[in-house]
């Protein structure tokens, strides 16, 4: 690679975005990526190169590639593969819990409104206890964590989820949770 000061400002800007990529991947692919970016900018004249910037779309594609590589896409390190698998697990577990609670909420609404056939209406509906505002806010913030993990870790190259264990976990959770 030429010394940094010999590079055009546009090439330096492309290389700055490419620093988001994991180092081992960058070592192999960086020059090729830069050449492809600059080939696409060939119609910009010499004067324009000083002011030209990568488009948001180009930068976004580099960010997306960096996220995929750091979360286990082909070409990722074993550590990134493990991190991606861990985040996908977090996303699924994090979504399983509110799904179970949703089932139980529907069940409690049916129960307290007397719509469960053969089951007596409870004397008190106090089990839907009120939580203070801060606790409720903290719970809602916690829900964002698996959603963020879901969006980042289920990238195009993520392996498909095996449905059976998760459906089984949902059924077990709905059955077991009220006893806890």
């Amino acid at each position: 690679m030429a010394p940094q000061e010999d590079l055009s400002p546009l090439e330096q800007r492309y290389r700055a975005w490419l620093r988001l990529l994991p180092a081992p991947y960058r070592e192999v692919w960086q020059d090729d990526l830069v050449a492809t970016f600059l080939d696409g900018a060939e119609d910009i004249d010499e004067a324009g190169l000083a002011d030209a910037h990568p488009t948001w779309s180009e930068a976004g594609s580099v960010v997306a590639l960096a996220v995929r590589l750091r979360l286990g896409a082909p070409g990722a390190t074993p550590r990134a593969v493990a991190l991606g698998a861990g985040l996908r697990l977090l996303a699924l577990v994090g979504l399983l819990a509110p799904t179970i609670l949703s089932f139980l909420y529907v069940d409690s609404v049916l129960w307290t409104s007397g719509r469960l056939p053969g089951v007596a209406v409870p004397l008190t509906d106090g089990h839907l206890s009120s939580l203070d505002g801060a606790t409720r806010l903290a719970q809602e913030a916690l829900l964002l964590l698996p959603v963020a993990a879901l969006l980042a870790a289920f990238h195009r190259d993520a392996p498909p989820v095996r449905r059976t264990p998760w459906l089984a976990a949902l059924v077990i959770g709905v059955v077991v949770e009220p006893a806890l």
């Binding site: 976004g60 594609s61 995929r68």
Partner: peptide, 27 residues
């Protein structure tokens, strides 16, 4: 073909419908 050659060829083959961004191409 090299990277940008692929980008151009894909755009041509798909009548401009598929425009590969560089990060997407390398993925």
């Amino acid at each position: 073909r090299h990277g940008y050659g692929i980008v151009r060829q894909v755009e041509e083959l798909s009548d401009g419908r598929v425009r590969l961004r560089v990060g997407t191409l390398y993925g």
